[in-house]
Design a protein around this nucleic acid. Structure first.
Lengths: 142, 142
DNA sequence: TATTGTTATACTCTATAACTATA
DNA sequence: TATAGTTATAGAGTATAACAATA
């Protein structure tokens, strides 16, 4: 019988504080939270269509449209019709988009490292390993 | 230069999946998520007034009122005027409230343990230790 | 004048359904 | 008929401001 706090009870304020720390960084580079998520998925990944992108970042397909409009207008992504299926649109990150993504990411992770520096090295490593594993598990159905 | 994912990027879907797992448990016992948080704070803690309660669970004072109404109507908490300061109301959990809180908590943590069982023992322990520490840090101003 | 609890209002986010153009 | 993207609408959740009672 454990007498610890519930995981969600601890994760919720932690996530809130991380998001609050990200906000000024994102604002300084002129991208929204979802915009940053989109740039990350396009920079890292094999995602090419909007439906696949929405699924990759855990968003509804209807919700990312405004974000894509903004990113495209700012020249951070391209969105071209797929010649092989003219219903679909092929997304790609531009050089400028990649640049912004890398700057934002570096600043965000630098802030995270300052937070993680409070932990003993062993716990810090275990935490990151466990988090990667749980993240993979949580994204599976079931 | 780390090449890991952002913390928030991993924490967000994990929290979502934990919350989704809690939902049917809470529904089966007839309490809302915020109701469960309130019962937890009152059962554990030294919180007595509504303002202190709101602060303890990270909610706005205007947001918990409907929750308190529901809990009181269900006989899970009491809410009496403070004779020493008639503006304030003294909150307390009832026996029935404590009973429900313990059942829900046991079920939620049992589900969490099933998830954590996927991790190597050392990472699991480091994860929980780190999470407790980060939770405390995140609740501090700064 | 400040504070506790309350109510009312507005704003943001998200989910759902319906539409278009292609297939 | 089914699918990719889009638009419109409604709902939930949240924040802000204003209020009554008490200090």
């Amino acid at each position: 019988m454990t007498s610890r706090r519930d995981l969600a009870e601890m994760l919720h304020p932690l996530l809130r504080s991380l998001v609050a720390a990200e906000r000024p960084v994102l604002a300084a580079h002129g991208v929204s939270m979802w915009g940053y998520a989109v740039l990350g998925a396009l920079d890292d990944g094999s995602v090419r269509t909007q439906a696949a992108l929405a699924d990759a970042i855990g968003a509804d397909k209807t919700r990312i449209i405004g974000t894509l409009d903004t990113l495209q207008a700012a020249g951070l992504i391209t969105r071209e019709p797929d010649p092989r299926d003219r219903r679909a649109r092929i997304l790609a990150i531009t050089g400028a988009g990649r640049e912004i993504r890398r700057s934002v990411r570096a600043e965000i992770q630098a802030g995270e490292e300052r937070l993680l520096a409070h932990l003993p090295e062993a716990d810090r490593r275990g935490f990151l390993r466990a988090l990667h594993a749980l993240h993979r598990l949580a994204r599976q159905p079931g």
